[in-house]
Simulated assay, not measured.
Amino acid sequence: MELERAGLPSRWYKSTLRVRYQESDQMGVVYHANYLNWFESGRTEMFRQVGFTYRELEKQGVLLPVTSADLQFKSPARYDDLISVYARMTTFSALRVVFEYQVRRLSEEEGGNSEDLLATLGELRSMDPPGELLVTGTTSHVWVNQEWRPARLDRALPELFHAIKEALREEGSSV
């Protein structure tokens, strides 16, 4: 189901980090491939906030490999920047899922109390999250089993399927 078309823009889930020295080059600019790692971190935290971990998915025999990735670079992140990765679902079905991301640089003030900021993110559906936009992107995934064959999530792990649907339904109620 494409959430935007269904009138259910998913809320942003946030994870925050400080750019480490190893993630930047000699000029202090973040190497482009690190953004994909940050996207993964955003997805992982999103699942955790829905009530499941990637570790649990894999123990249950369900994997979620990336089938495509798209990134648009607006401005570079730099060593020691405070960064937030915002992730949300734009498409969700028993076979596929698409995530949208925004990587934003936060001021020290914006990075303050993450609980207060998370409370306001529920309202940030069509609005932009706080901070300077650095990178946007999407990743597409397919649910597979341990043999890397497509697996219907509603059959392979119905608890997660229903937890995601319920989270999306709750989000849609305040749109």
Score class of each variant (00 low, 15 high):
Tyr86Asn: 03
Phe161Leu: 03
Ala156Phe: 00
Asp70Trp: 05
Arg5Glu: 15
Gln22Gly: 12
Thr90Gln: 08
Ala119Phe: 03
Pro65Trp: 13
Arg155Ser: 05
Arg55Tyr: 09
Ser93Val: 01
Ala87Gln: 03
Tyr86Phe: 09
Tyr31Asn: 15
Tyr79Ser: 12
Phe39Gly: 11
Leu64Val: 15
Met127Gln: 05
Arg104Met: 08
Gly111Lys: 11
Leu106Asn: 10
Arg104Trp: 01
Arg149Met: 09
Met1Cys: 06
Ser75Gly: 03
Glu159Lys: 07
Glu159Ile: 00
Gly172Phe: 04
Leu8Gly: 10
Val62His: 09
Ser41Gln: 15
His141Ala: 04
Gln146Leu: 08
Phe47Arg: 11
Arg149Ser: 07
Asp81Phe: 03
Pro130Ala: 04
Thr16Pro: 02
Leu133Pro: 01
Thr67Gln: 12
Glu100Leu: 02
Ile83His: 02
Ser174Gly: 06
Gly122Thr: 08
Glu109Phe: 08
Leu134Phe: 03
Leu3Thr: 06
Leu63Ile: 09
Leu124Pro: 00
Arg169Val: 11
Glu58Ser: 09
Asp81Trp: 00
His32Arg: 07
Asn113Cys: 09
Phe52Gln: 12
Gln146Val: 07
Glu123Arg: 09
Thr44Tyr: 00
Gly7Thr: 10
Val66Ala: 14
Met46Gln: 15
Tyr13Trp: 14
Leu3Ala: 07
Ser10Leu: 02
Gln72Gly: 05
Ala69Gly: 10
Glu109Trp: 02
Ser126Glu: 04
Ser15Cys: 10
Tyr86Ala: 02
Val135Phe: 02
Asp154Val: 01
Leu160Lys: 05
Thr44Leu: 09
Leu157Lys: 04
Leu153Asn: 09
Pro130Leu: 01
Pro76Trp: 10
Gly131His: 00
Tyr35Asn: 10
Asp81Cys: 05
Trp38Ile: 14
Arg105Thr: 01
Arg18Met: 11
Tyr31Phe: 15
Met46Ser: 08
Asp116Pro: 00
Thr139Asp: 01
Pro76Lys: 12
Glu171Tyr: 01
Gln72Thr: 13
Arg18Ile: 14
Lys74Asn: 04
Val175Gly: 13
Leu133Ala: 06
Asn113Tyr: 00
Ser24Ile: 06
Val142Arg: 13
Pro129Tyr: 01
Tyr86Ile: 02
Glu56Ile: 07
Arg152Asp: 02
Ser107Lys: 10
Ile164Met: 11
His141Cys: 07
Asn145Lys: 06
Glu115Pro: 02
Arg11Cys: 10
Tyr79Arg: 08
Thr136Asn: 01
Gln22Leu: 12
Val175Leu: 11
Thr90Ala: 04
Leu124Glu: 04
His32Lys: 06
Arg48Glu: 13
Asn145Phe: 05
Gln22Lys: 14
Leu3Val: 06
Leu82Gln: 10
Phe47Gly: 10
Gly111Asp: 05
Thr44Asp: 08
Ser174Cys: 09
Glu4Gly: 06
Leu71Ile: 14
Asn37Val: 14
Pro150Ala: 13
Phe92Cys: 03
Leu8Asn: 11
Arg55Phe: 05
Pro129Glu: 04
Lys59Trp: 03
Ser15Gln: 14
Glu56Lys: 14
Lys74Cys: 06
Ala119Met: 05
Glu40Tyr: 10
Glu2Phe: 11
Met127Leu: 03
Arg105Asn: 05
Thr90Met: 04
Gly28Phe: 02
Ala119Asn: 09
Arg18Glu: 12
